[in-house]
Design a protein around this nucleic acid. Structure first.
Lengths: 336, 336
DNA sequence: GGTGCTATTTGAATGGGTTCAATCCGTTGC
DNA sequence: GCAACGGATTGAACCCATTCAAATAGCACC
């Protein structure tokens, strides 16, 4: 393994017989350099196999050409797509992506984001935990531009982009009610998550509190299977289930299929997020589709604005999500 | 936005009335500091809200506490899980993860990995493209420790960890043949990928070249749907299809279901990778399961060894993959 | 040839840490 | 009481870039 010292800007300058300043200017296009010198410098760089040291670069500039991404995990199709999009757009603009995972835990989020900030990243995208306050204080104190994505938060210090969960939930519930559903179960990861609260509000506002059950299930482990089975076997069981992500959707489908003769005839299923397999099932899974590339694009625009020094008041943007109906949503039993 | 200068180690030293050296030693545990001084320093740090500047730290040490991950994308369940595991294990050891995506293109890989290396990362995990040679030369020249994951490569300069694709493919094909299958279609992303070559070798060795068809389909777009439909509708159509990843599996399932009365009775399906939905389908999807956490753990161990200066010859480790049979694999039609 | 411009080029100061040789100081042994 | 020792502490040099004030070069015009 060749651990020889790599050439520095000084080596390049010596070989090209120019000052280090000139080399730096060629490297960064800081000021105009005459074609002849530029060429000499570039030749020297390729001869030596010189690679700019971004640590020194960033150290001097006080910001690394790196953007951070903090998210709960990357296991869900939704967050994987978000990560993918972000890397794509950041890479195109010459930024690297440094990613931390919060495992849904505010403490972990605080610790990992603190570590990120120590690297003097130029900007940060956060898909926050249910309680990001201390983390946000830290980010704010550091002066690092940040945009909160997907999960709105009572905080007017940061730009935010999210989906209009209330509107799409209202649309979905209205549709279920038109189909005759009068008892709706909503399964959420966590009630304290802002998006869950908004969805629950919309659900209750449209269907009435007495017609709804909310079940909180974390990541939907074995315990969930038991509770769901019980709830769906009760005498006045729900006729429609809405789940808040695709991981829970998978678990729920499993349960629905073990119960005898209920799915999809007697119980309808609708999921937030659109996993790749939604359309492979029979019946197809009805979903609420959230356009990931759009949210990343909007968030990136906001982030770039802040990174280039814009200081206008924080904005909160909401994008529309889309209700995609497939065979998993049917008329309530006894109707039509 | 508070863009005031953050406190430096000098500020801390002044406030605690010690030298900067002492503060640095408290920060990094470089040498022993007496409890009384240590406490004074720590108090000063919290008073000022000091956060270590990792750029300066890394610049002096010539290595950032950052590990790189280069992978084709994160859209597949397999690569998402790999990313997740890597972030987990790296985070536990105080490293940040900087990720680049190669989009399956050697040029992009070269460019993005070069950018990574400029950040003087301490180590690199690569899930390489089909032709990583120039990238590997660059990595080698930089002296950065690296481990090649999942996709073996003719290169004895780097440690490698992969699954034993030949063995598991042999096991799978042997099983299909016992069930009477004599014409097997193998659908791969790209034939030039080393894992594809190994799988194809094992397939042909076991089933005979004349009994196998290999179809190359990239990411399995519309074109693939057409070609697959055609192949499966031919007079002597294959009775078993093996696909090399879960994205292609999804597409393939779709096609199988549009064809009339063939799946799963007349055509069996087996997929490399285990997507979360494998067991949700009816029939369940048979898969070749590749334990992701294991491969990351092994790779990390190797990487740490190199990062701490071990110079033994490069090792090539192979892990066993596991054949998981479900309803999608049946007897060939006419048999039993 | 000299003057006055402008466009390039230079190089020393700088960023915020780490590190190591030198210093300091308290003990121990005689 | 003094020398030798060893552990704790110090602070100047260094890492490799960027940047800006100052020097220089090139050119047109008289």
């Amino acid at each position: 393994m060749n651990r020889n010292k790599q050439p520095t800007i000084t080596d390049v300058a010596r070989l090209a017989d120019v000052s280090v300043g000139t080399v730096s200017h060629v490297l960064n296009g800081t000021i105009k350099v005459s074609p002849s010198l530029r060429e000499r410098v570039e030749r020297a760089m390729t001869m030596l196999g010189y690679e700019q040291n971004m640590l020194a670069h960033a150290q001097r500039r006080q910001r690394a050409p790196v953007v951070g991404l903090s998210a709960p995990h990357v296991a869900s199709a939704y967050l994987a797509a978000l990560t993918d999009s972000f890397e794509d757009v950041a890479g195109l603009r010459g930024y690297q992506m440094m990613q931390v995972l919060t495992r849904r835990d505010p403490q972990t989020e605080l610790r990992r984001v603190r570590e990120l900030l120590r690297h003097r990243i130029a900007g940060l995208l956060m898909v926050s935990t249910f309680d990001p306050r201390r983390t946000l204080d830290l980010v704010h104190a550091s002066g690092t531009p940040a945009v909160l994505v997907d999960r709105p938060c009572e905080d007017d210090r940061f730009d935010q982009v999210s989906f209009d969960n209330r509107a799409v939930m209202d649309e979905a519930v209205a549709h279920l009610m038109r189909l005759g559903h009068r008892r709706i179960l909503f399964v959420v990861e966590s009630q304290v998550l802002s998006i869950s609260r908004h969805r629950i509000e919309a659900l209750r506002a449209r269907a009435g509190a007495s017609a709804t059950i909310v079940m909180e299930v974390g990541d939907g482990g074995e315990e969930y299977v038991r509770r769901l089975t019980e709830t769906l076997s009760a005498r006045r069981a729900p006729t429609a289930v809405i789940v808040s992500n695709s991981l829970i959707a998978a678990r729920t489908l499993h349960v629905l299929r073990t119960l005898h003769d209920v799915y999809p005839e007697r119980i309808s299923l609708l999921a937030f997020e659109e996993p790749e397999w939604a359309n492979l099932l029979d019946p197809g899974l009805s979903v609420i589709r959230q356009p990931v590339r759009d949210i990343v694009r909007v968030a990136w625009d906001l982030l770039v604005r802040r990174m280039t020094g814009e200081t206008s008041p924080a904005r909160h943007m909401e994008l529309r999500a889309e209700l995609v109906l497939r065979g998993s949503v049917r008329h309530a039993p006894g109707r039509r």
